[in-house]
Structure formats: structure tokens, C-alpha cells
């Protein structure tokens, strides 16, 4: 399990407007591309310095590939990162103000305290 790597995906997509659109339109393709091009780079280092060990577990990869925010929450992905990215991806699909955010909350309503641990 790699909460850190899940978070790294959410973080690096959310901060780049082109990647936000790409992930909205082609989640599976974006995840595959990310796993070879972005994920292995260390954000503070030259791009050729690559990780030799970080990877996503199959269920983590699938959650990202199908935009499954509930699974991401259950896995302990950082809820702020997921929410912020989801607002960028899907707020536009709702007519009412805060429609996406309230729908998001409802999808998570079965989670009771304590929530899944987000410590990385």
C-alpha cells in the first residue's frame, strides 16, 4: 500500500491545468502515462533521477483509473488533495452551487469516526 504515491498522483495532477483535463477525459490512460513519466520522478530532483521502488498497488491504481473517490478515502488518500482535484474535475457537471461537494459528502456518509488513517 502506498498512500504517499496515491497522494503524489493527486498532487501532481491537481496543480497542472492540462493534466486535470487529461485525467477528466482519459483517467485510465492518464494513470498509465503518469506511472512512467511523472510518478517515478522525485519532485525536488533532476528529472532523470528516478525512483527504483515506488509503485501503486492494483486496487490503488484501479481507484484512480475509475475516479473512485470513495475507495480513495477508504485507502487513506489525503482528503484535501482528493477534494480539491474533484472540484476541478467535476464541479462543472453540477448545476447547483456546492452540488458536487454535497454529492461527494453523501457518497462518504457511511464512514464513521475514526476515519481511515491518512498518515504517510
Amino acid at each position: 500500500m502506498s498512500k504517499y504515491y496515491l497522494n503524489k498522483f493527486l498532487f501532481t495532477i491537481d496543480r497542472d491545468p492540462e493534466l486535470v483535463e487529461r485525467y477528466r477525459n482519459d483517467p485510465k490512460g492518464t494513470v498509465a502515462w503518469w506511472l512512467t513519466e511523472i510518478g517515478p520522478t522525485n519532485l525536488g530532483l533532476a528529472s532523470f533521477e528516478r525512483t527504483t521502488w515506488l509503485t501503486l498497488e492494483p486496487d490503488e491504481r484501479e481507484a484512480l483509473e475509475i475516479h473512485d473517490k470513495v475507495a480513495l478515502f477508504a485507502m487513506g488518500a489525503h482528503p484535501f488533495l482528493t477534494l480539491t482535484l474533484w472540484i476541478a474535475l467535476f464541479e462543472r457537471d453540477f448545476e447547483e452551487p456546492l452540488g458536487m461537494q454535497l454529492d461527494y459528502a453523501k457518497a462518504l456518509e457511511h464512514f464513521k469516526l475514526p476515519y481511515p488513517d491518512i498518515t504517510t
Binding site: F73, H78, P79, F80, Q101, Y104, A105, K106, E109, H110
Partner: peptide, 9 residues
């Protein structure tokens, strides 16, 4: 609450 079931109440 951000990104959880109690958000935006």
C-alpha cells in the same frame, strides 16, 4: 471538514 462526509453542511 474537507473531503469527508461532514463537509459543506
Amino acid at each position: 471538514e474537507l473531503g469527508g462526509p461532514r463537509q459543506f453542511g
